[in-house]
Computed example of a mutant assay.
Amino acid sequence: MAAQRRITNPALFICDLQEKFRPAIHEFPQVIKTAQKLLRASQILDIPVFATTQNAPRLGPTCPELGLDVPGGVQTAVHADKTLFSMLTPEVRKGMASLGSRLSCVIVGIETHICVTQTAIDLLREGHKVYVIADGVSSCNKEEIPIALARLRSEGVVVTTSESWLYECVGDAGIEEFRQIIGVVKESHQSTKDVLQTLCKI
């Protein structure tokens, strides 16, 4: 039997990682590191990327190190601006509709208790599988984060880590892209450790 991926129809959601928020968000650089890792994996595994900004005319573009929708950077299925807190804008919904009826949606970004939570709940209500990456989300007030994650678990969201999700997404060391994913994991080993120690303290 041919090697198959464990997670079917995955899509990566990057929520409002804008430069303007850098000074305000708890451990913002760590969230960026996790987003970068998942963006690299998305290119290897051909996972569509949905990105949003919150009121970009006032709050500015996404962080430049993510390289979203720039020449030679990560091309997104949709990169939409919004005033909604949920990422499910008409543009995002249209892009999702082209991918099939049930997606496995993995979310990173900010803020955990507002835009990430509302996006996750909307996706659940529409029948999608939802993963929120604990080492890839944050808020201005760090105390909001565990409360939001606990609520999301109770709603049916899978709260997991970026490395766990990557291995689950691949599911089989026999798939063609596994060596490249292992490369991403190895190259980000120290930063993953640092991020977990700051964003996922027990």
Rank of each mutant, 00 (worst) to 15 (best):
A80G: 05
K201C: 14
Q118H: 10
K201T: 15
E168T: 09
V130N: 02
M1D: 13
Y131H: 10
D194I: 14
G95P: 08
S104M: 08
V184I: 13
I7K: 08
T160V: 04
I147K: 14
R58H: 10
E111T: 04
C115Y: 00
E126V: 06
C140P: 10
A3E: 11
T83D: 10
T8D: 12
V106R: 01
A148D: 06
E176Q: 13
P48D: 03
Q30Y: 12
V106P: 03
P71C: 06
Q197Y: 11
T119V: 06
S42D: 00
H26V: 02
C105P: 07
E27G: 03
Q36P: 00
E143L: 13
R125Q: 12
L103C: 08
V159I: 13
A11C: 12
L45M: 04
I14R: 03
K33V: 08
D69W: 01
T89W: 07
T89M: 07
V137M: 06
G73H: 03
D81Q: 03
H128W: 07
E144P: 08
Q180R: 14
A120F: 07
C15F: 04
A97M: 09
M87E: 06
W165K: 05
V116P: 01
Q18F: 02
L103E: 07
E65G: 05
P57K: 04
A51N: 02
L103V: 09
R153E: 13
T119H: 03
S104D: 10
L199C: 06
P23K: 07
